[in-house]
């Protein structure tokens, strides 16, 4: 009985964390798949979502409205970055785009540092984020269940969008061969804007749960999400959307697993292990651990 409970507990934790990681990775991979841009500023979209929670949450608005507004702000920020910073360098080399995103990331982080505060700010989160429920002797945090459900629903909706709409198949086609997609008359700006909008949406969604975990926000809050997204999308094979999702879940399981298995002394080096794995993967399986999916892309 106890054993079963442990396993269930592990599954819920891993699936909820993995779901969040999958959303993070998908947001990064989507833009990469089309523009071949590793968007370092992706983490700062999570930050924008976090500070929006802080700002809108200060008023009397109900939390759900605050949450919607925050996600919206992340989308707007993502679209704005595309228009102002990335579009002018789109035809330049991949390195130029990359460095631009690095600069944008620094810009936004220091903007928050300057305009808000370098210190940690407490964010109001609804009580269910910190509440637990007991189901049959199992202690489950409500926020874990929520993130588990939200990530699954989001992934399902995105899959439908990518498979059932013309814009969705244009996005997948552009990831295959962008020039050919344009030769069919699909507007480049439209496809890229759509990718950035979805990327911003996912970052905003992630921000809700990421901020909810600690009920606080700092300018550097985006660093860990973007690192996780890197790792997960490399595991999935850069640019494969299905791979990114699978990589996210795998990373979630790995993280929760290592947390339970590793002794404290080695736990400190967990991040180093994780990135060591990333390097090995890039060397020996650049197509990702969960490859073989590219040809029959499921998402």
């Amino acid at each position: 009985m106890n054993m079963v409970n442990d396993i269930l507990q592990f599954l819920i934790n891993a699936l909820s964390l993995g779901g969040l990681y999958a959303l993070m990775a998908l947001g990064l991979a989507l833009v990469y798949s089309i523009l071949r841009l590793i968007n370092f500023a992706y983490g700062e979209l999570v930050m924008v979502g976090g500070y929006s929670l802080l700002v809108f949450g200060a008023g009397p608005l109900p939390w759900i409205i605050v949450a919607l507004l925050s996600v919206l702000m992340a989308i707007v920020a993502s679209l704005l970055l595309e228009r102002v910073a990335f579009r002018p360098v789109r035809d330049a080399s991949a390195n130029t785009m990359l460095i631009t995103s690095f600069a944008v990331s620094t810009l936004l982080q220091n903007g928050a540092l300057l305009l808000v505060s370098p210190r940690t700010r407490a964010v109001r989160v609804p009580s269910f984020f910190i509440e637990n429920v007991t189901v049959g002797g199992l202690l489950i945090s409500k926020s874990n269940v929520l993130s588990l459900v939200v990530s699954l629903v989001t992934l399902a909706i995105l899959t439908l969008f990518l498979r059932r709409t013309v814009l969705g198949s244009a996005l997948r086609a552009a990831a295959d061969d962008f020039v050919m997609t344009r030769l069919l008359g699909v507007r480049a700006n439209q496809v890229i804007a759509a990718a950035f909008a979805i990327s911003g949406f996912l970052a905003g969604l992630v921000a809700l749960f990421w901020v909810g975990r600690t009920a606080s926000v700092v300018p550097q809050i985006g660093l860990n999400p973007v690192l996780i997204a890197f790792v997960a999308s490399v595991i999935g094979g850069m640019g494969s959307l299905a791979g990114a999702v699978a990589g996210g879940y795998l990373l979630g399981f790995l993280t929760v697993g290592l947390n339970t298995v590793l002794p404290q002394g080695l736990l400190d080096f967990r991040q180093a292990f994780l990135f060591g794995i990333v390097i090995l993967l890039l060397l020996f399986r650049p197509q990702g651990l969960v490859s073989g999916m590219q040809s029959t892309e499921r998402i």
């Binding site: 990469y32 071949r36 991949a94 890197f230 490399v234 850069m238 991040q271 390097i279 890039l282």
Partner: peptide, 16 residues
């Protein structure tokens, strides 16, 4: 590695 692979691998090296 070159291109995106090199970027992420060297970044990973920095983190490690």
């Amino acid at each position: 590695l070159s291109g995106a692979g090199a970027v992420i691998a060297t970044f990973a090296l920095l983190v490690i």
